[in-house]
């Protein structure tokens, strides 16, 4: 197809504008990729010269920062297991059983969920955790997040399960399977893509959170990475850019790895019903 000259110019202008907007968004990411490898990194964007891993060596020498990554991992994985398992079972029950008012239950929970993990409820949560004797434990963080994330997870998963034909489990049961067998053999594999979405979503949520662990934890040895990142600020409050950049990159790797792993292993897809 032959383009007219105004259309041609228009396309060039559009592409140039798109490239400019893209570059503006790319700049912080480029900084994020370059700065950790630069021994003299500042807030401006600069190519490292020479490339070096010294920043990472220093960060790994900081035992508090390394311990914090491990703490983040414990809290995130613990929360994910709790949210994933509980949301799957609850959503399945809500979708398949005929409990009266089950719709209302989900919506009310959903309404209050933003409160639980939000800052408005911080004081009562602090008091509850304190009264339960769970202050300064991983469990406190895990339970608080589970409470905050579960309703949304249940809501997403219930919608997902609603869209899966009941006849899968029915045919399994007619074929001789118990409800539990039908759940594990037939329903769970079909729901799995939905569970994966929940797992990634709750992992990212817990991994990146700051306020809840900051308030519920006391000792340095329990702090997650999101809080420990403050150890790379000088006492005057200025960031040590080189170390901060290196630590930030390490901190973001698990999330990237999780996305890559999930899309390689499961794919963000959905079997759904077979088109009849």
């Amino acid at each position: 197809m032959k383009l007219t000259i105004p259309a041609f110019v228009g396309r060039i202008a559009f592409s140039a504008l798109a490239a400019l907007i893209g570059a503006i968004f790319a700049l912080p990411l480029l900084w994020f990729l370059f700065a950790p490898f630069n021994a003299r990194a500042e807030l401006g964007l600069a190519l490292p010269d020479p490339w070096t891993l010294n920043n990472f060596v220093t960060v790994f020498g900081n035992s508090y920062a390394v311990q914090a990554l491990w703490n983040s991992f414990i809290q995130a994985v613990g929360g994910v297991i709790l949210v994933g398992a509980a949301a799957t079972l609850a959503a399945y029950a809500l979708s398949r059983s005929s409990i009266p008012g089950k719709g209302a239950v989900t919506y009310i929970l959903l309404l209050f969920s933003s409160v639980v993990s939000g800052s408005a409820a911080m004081v009562p949560i602090f008091l509850i955790v304190s009264a339960a004797g769970l202050m300064d434990t991983h469990l406190a963080v895990i339970l608080t997040f589970a409470g905050g994330l579960l309703p949304t997870a249940m809501f997403i998963l219930r919608d997902f399960i609603d869209s899966i034909p009941k006849s899968y489990e029915e045919s399994a049961m007619v074929a001789g399977a118990s409800p539990v067998q039908a759940f594990f053999d037939v329903a769970l594999p079909v729901i799995r893509p939905g569970i994966v979405v929940i797992v990634v979503w709750s992992f990212v949520n817990i991994w990146g959170s700051f306020l809840i662990p900051f308030i519920l934890l006391r000792s340095d040895s329990n702090m997650p990475a999101s809080v420990a990142i403050y150890s790379f600020y000088s006492e005057a409050g200025t960031p040590i850019v080189t170390l901060l950049a290196a630590y930030s990159l390490i901190y973001s790797l698990p999330v990237i790895a999780l996305y890559l792993f999930v899309s390689w292993k499961f794919g963000f897809r959905f079997f759904g019903g077979i088109k009849a």
Partner: peptide, 11 residues
Amino acid sequence: MVFQDYALYPH
């Protein structure tokens, strides 16, 4: 039982 939508397990 044979179901109208066949209910074949997709996985």
